[in-house]
Simulated scan of single mutants.
Amino acid sequence: MSKLYLVPTPIGNLEDITYRAVRILKEADVILAEDTRTSAPLLKHFGIEKRVYAHHQHNEHKASAEIVRFLKEGQMVALISDAGTPAVSDPGFFLVREVLKAGLAVECLPGATAFVPALVNSGLPTDRFCFDGFLPVKKGRQTRLRELLAEERTMIFYESPHRLLKTLTEFASVFGEERPASVSRELTKVFEETVRGSLLEIRTYFETHTLKGEFVICVAGKGKERIED
C-alpha cells in the first residue's frame, strides 16, 4: 500500500522495538534512514534486507521530491531516524509536509522516544509539560531562555555531553539555582542514570561524573519551585 510510515526505533535497548515496526520495515519497498551506517546493525539484527536511502537534514529538501515520486508510483516507504521517533528533534517534518501536500498518506507508529521516560522518571509534574528539544546553540538562545521564564509547565530539553554543564549553568542563572530538575542519560542502556535535585545540585554532580551519552533535562516550571511530597 502506498504510504509513508514513520517508524520509531529503539533509543538503546533493541527489545524496545515493536512487532508492528519490524513488520512495516520488512514490508516496505524503501527505507529512509538518517544515517545508513547507524541503521545497518539494527536492520541486520531483525533480518531486514531492503533498499536503504540516506535521508538527513542536509539532503531532506532535495530527497523529498524523489520520495513523493516513489509514493505516487505505489511504493511503501518507511522513515527511521538514528534512534527514537522520526521528526522529533530529527529529520522528518519537511518530508511529512511535502507528502501531505501531494495528497498522499502518512502514518506514524507509536514507539520509542527519549523525553517521555525522562519526564516520568523525573518526579516533576507530568500533567502539563512543554518539549523544547535542543535549544539554539548561539543565535536566539538567550531570547528563548527569557521566553521560558514565565513557563509554568515542566520543561524538557535535549542536550549533548559537551554542552551539558554550560546549559545547566545557564538554567541555574535564568531559573534560579534551587529550581527542581532532573537529568537522564543513556536511557534504556546498561548505564542508564537519572539525577534529581536542584539545578545547582545536578550541575555539581556532573562536574565530577561521566559526561557521556544522550542527555534529557527536565526543569520544573515557574511556581513549582517546591514540589510537594
Rank of each mutant, 00 (worst) to 15 (best):
A78T: 12
V88D: 05
K138R: 12
K224R: 07
T38R: 09
I31T: 11
T208A: 15
H55G: 02
V99E: 00
Q57M: 06
L42F: 07
E225G: 13
H55A: 07
K222Y: 06
A220W: 01
N13M: 04
T154E: 00
Y158E: 09
R185K: 14
L200N: 03
L145E: 04
L95Q: 01
T113H: 12
P86V: 11
A105N: 04
A33V: 05
I156A: 02
G84Y: 02
S160I: 14
E178W: 02
N121K: 06
F94C: 02
S184T: 10
E214W: 12
G92C: 06
F134R: 10
G92D: 08
E178T: 10
Y5E: 03
L43Q: 04
R23I: 13
G176C: 03
S160E: 14
S198P: 08
V219T: 05
G221T: 08
L165P: 06
F94Q: 10
P161Y: 14
H209E: 04
F70V: 05
M1L: 04
A181L: 13
I17K: 00
F191V: 04
V216G: 00
L43Y: 08
Q57E: 15
E201C: 02
G74Y: 03
E207G: 07
L42S: 04
L135G: 10
F70A: 09
T36H: 11
G111H: 01
I48W: 12
G223Q: 13
V68M: 09
V52K: 05
A78Y: 07
K50E: 09
A65W: 03
A220I: 08
L199K: 00
V195L: 02
V22C: 06
A78G: 10
G111P: 08
L135D: 09
A21W: 02
E170M: 14
H61G: 04
E193R: 13
V137K: 11
M76E: 15
A105T: 07
F93H: 12
E152N: 06
C130E: 09
K72N: 03
A181H: 07
E147Y: 07
M155A: 02
L124V: 12
S89A: 13
M76V: 12
G84M: 09
V137C: 05
L211Q: 03
V68D: 06
E152T: 13
G92V: 08
E73F: 10
V68Q: 12
H58S: 02
P41C: 08
I80N: 02
F206Q: 02
L168M: 14
G103Y: 10
R203K: 15
I67A: 04
V68K: 13
H209Y: 07
V22E: 11
I31H: 00
P110L: 10
I227T: 14
S39H: 07
V219F: 05
S64C: 11
F70T: 05
